[in-house]
């Protein structure tokens, strides 16, 4: 092989590598778009509170759970799966580090019996309680739970545990439907403390989805019954 030929070949090979890199980047961009990552809801910091463990930022989050996908982030048409149960307004959450977070969840959905009654217990909240329509409680019987809000896991050792899990009691079937198409919700409030920053995920542990075990469909799809929780600064 002569020198100019060889040079041309090397150039051609290099060009192919560049084209390949562009294809990888292009396809990953396309897949991100297809994945439709939900927007992030940031908890509003509202001042500082003194606690036994030192000063903590106060922050609050308000979420809702619906028997369908018509009222949350998927738009009034409900997106690809209007019939799927969903959390709203979104499922990617952000809360400040070293904060006392107050969460309010309005549940508009009826109950589905838990697979594991363990998740009917309130865990990891301040005082070990949640307030259901203003009444403090430590647990809900498995048959009355509609969904749960369960934060867990740590991809990295050393990241503080945040084993928060609260059951959301279902709306009784007899509740009349209001003007918005939903019955009056069960309002659940609870507080938890965050430590240093870290990445968590949260999910529902009630088999409210589709297919085997009730964990298919919305239960296995971010943007419906599950999402991420980032504890951060700023």
């Amino acid at each position: 092989m002569t020198a100019p030929q060889s040079g041309r070949h090397l150039l051609g090979a290099l060009g192919t590598v560049v084209v390949g890199a562009v294809v990888v980047v292009g396809v990953s961009g396309l897949l991100r778009v297809l994945a439709a990552v939900p927007p992030t809801l940031r908890a509003r910091p509202v001042g500082v509170v003194q606690t036994a463990v030192g000063p903590l930022t106060r922050a609050s989050l308000t979420l809702s759970t619906y028997p369908d996908s018509l009222a949350g982030e998927h738009g009034s048409g409900g997106g690809a799966h209007p019939g799927w149960v969903s959390y709203g307004p979104t499922t990617n959450l952000w809360v400040p580090a070293h904060a006392l977070v107050t969460v309010t969840i309005r549940n508009y959905d009826g109950a589905t019996t838990l697979t594991d009654p363990f998740y009917g217990r309130v865990q990891g909240t301040v005082g070990g309680v949640e307030w259901v329509n203003g009444r403090a409680t430590r647990g809900v019987p498995a048959a009355q739970v509609a969904h749960t809000f369960t934060i867990h896991m740590f991809p990295t050792p050393g990241q503080p545990l945040l084993d928060v899990s609260v059951p959301l009691p279902g709306v009784p079937a007899s509740t009349p439907v209001g003007a918005d198409g939903y019955p009056a919700p069960t309002v659940v409030t609870f507080q938890f403390r965050t430590g240093a920053s870290g990445r968590y995920i949260w999910q529902c542990e009630d088999p409210c989805g589709t297919r085997v075990g009730g964990f298919g469909g919305p239960m296995s799809t971010q943007g419906y019954m599950t999402g991420t929780l980032v504890v951060g600064h700023g």
Partner: peptide
């Protein structure tokens, strides 16, 4: 085991 297999960890 599905969506969050990576995060199925306990201390």
């Amino acid at each position: 085991c599905g969506l969050y297999h990576s995060y199925m960890q306990s201390r």
